[in-house]
Design a protein around this nucleic acid. Sequence first.
DNA 1: AGATATTTGCAACAAATAAATCATTAAAAT
DNA 2: ATTTTAATGATTTATTTGTTGCAAATATCT
Lengths: 295, 295
Amino acid sequence: MQPSDSLREQMIAQYDAMSAQLQQAARYVLEHPQDVALVSMREVARHAAVQPATMTRLAKFLGLPGYDELRAQYAAALRDGGDGFAAKVRKRVVEGSERGVSDIASHMLQGLSAQLAKLCEPDSLRRLEAAADRLKSARKVYVLGLRSSHAVAWHFHYVMTLLGERSVHLDGPGGTGGDALVRATSEDVLLVISIKPYATGALELAQLAKAQGVGIVSITDSEVSPLVALSEQAVFCPTESDSFFHTLTPALAVSEVLCSLLAEFDRPKTLEALQQADEHLLHLNTYATAIPRRR
Amino acid sequence: MQPSDSLREQMIAQYDAMSAQLQQAARYVLEHPQDVALVSMREVARHAAVQPATMTRLAKFLGLPGYDELRAQYAAALRDGGDGFAAKVRKRVVEGSERGVSDIASHMLQGLSAQLAKLCEPDSLRRLEAAADRLKSARKVYVLGLRSSHAVAWHFHYVMTLLGERSVHLDGPGGTGGDALVRATSEDVLLVISIKPYATGALELAQLAKAQGVGIVSITDSEVSPLVALSEQAVFCPTESDSFFHTLTPALAVSEVLCSLLAEFDRPKTLEALQQADEHLLHLNTYATAIPRRR
DNA sequence: AGATATTTGCAACAAATAAATCATTAAAAT
DNA sequence: ATTTTAATGATTTATTTGTTGCAAATATCT
């Protein structure tokens, strides 16, 4: 699957010596080796968000006569990776169900993969869509997730912030998280994430919000979750895993899908908000692509 | 490895109804499916000893708008077949493409599912195992994840505390998150999660920790991530999604797998720790299974 | 801060591509 | 045997491809 290896390794080795654009191109090539073999250079460049010329420059940087040679290498790799030798080895690893440490991992990941696939069933999709609709009609979205669900709640809130949406994360030091709800009205919606075992605090806050007339949308794990009774809309996600604890991965996926649907709803606005965020973070030097020099 | 099957079968079925030249072209295509995807039409025609126009005619004979569509089908087939394990999952993506309103959601979830499946490849599993080994040898595990990666870092830390492991989350109000590192030694390990765009703060802290002799294990998105240079062990997770932002779901899955491997390492200890946590939380009335009565 | 390299984006270019068109040939039907 | 039909080959056309040269922008070094 990899081009003669030497090329791939060379790219990784010399990555730090490349210019920013070259790195961007190289990164895409490393992550999408099939594309290099299967689509035209200009299209690869478009996907990598890079000028066409940069792809040529990348090839030359690697010591090749031109881009065509690069493509040829990847094509050759894809040829005998497709149904040749490497494929069988790979298959044997998958089939070979021997006990081992990596077996636990593999089994778990396959399970998670299947769970996400299951979320594509019509009922789930309907619920996702309904939940997104309800959320987008809200003036303000309060997000609540305690204990393990905190990660999901926080991530949802973080993405919503980037999208410029009015999102309030019900969390704070010293148990003050729920205070922000005092100003919530019936025009607002509370998104509450809770899976078994359900945190008492989350249920109480949700109930309180509902009493205030706030609409409730929930991400939870079952039709018989206590949240269902409180919610206008509920999305269900599996949490079982063959480990000691419940998995949050499907819940996070659901929340990301919700974000995506909301973002898709008004693309221009989303794009503008993202650009604004980009500029802001750029000025703050929030991000880096290489190891910062120590001072 | 074959294009959507229907095409291949159609060619075989209608083979007798073709003219001599068309048969010659079709035969070559059937016998060299990879060439169709990887080289230009004219070259395929040359290899098949057929006029270039004949290839176009073949495509139209099969009911396709043009040769490009034929190539596209073979390219898609090569994509799925070529890349080992995720193939099956992704195939379902192509097939189950009902276009509806919730198409975005469905597509996104199937993509995530495929990405998790991809994590089962031998290389990923090796890395997961190595990372888990390194973590379990640590006296104390510091966990660092800024911005979007915060969710993953927090969740990892949360699970680790339930498991009774010595885990320290490098986060705190007012930018004091890194302070806990002052006491870190070479017996400890820092687990840092960062995906593109890489938060400057995370890189700086990781670099500082490394200078102190702290071992570094990272969850990141690419072999050319700046974290790789700092890390003893690195696990790579995909982050692409067809939404506006990168997905964290695979990263979270990876972190859950790591937790699981660590828990599995010493089952008795894990069970004891979980039971202890259960009791503790029970006394605090942390969890409920029904809607709490309002007071 | 100024001077010098380097990097980057843009536009133009020639080569190659797939498709469309027309002419020629072979086959079938009357 | 002649007309009609389909098939094949050659030619042309509008795109698209990979590449290159050059100016603006950026970074680097005295």
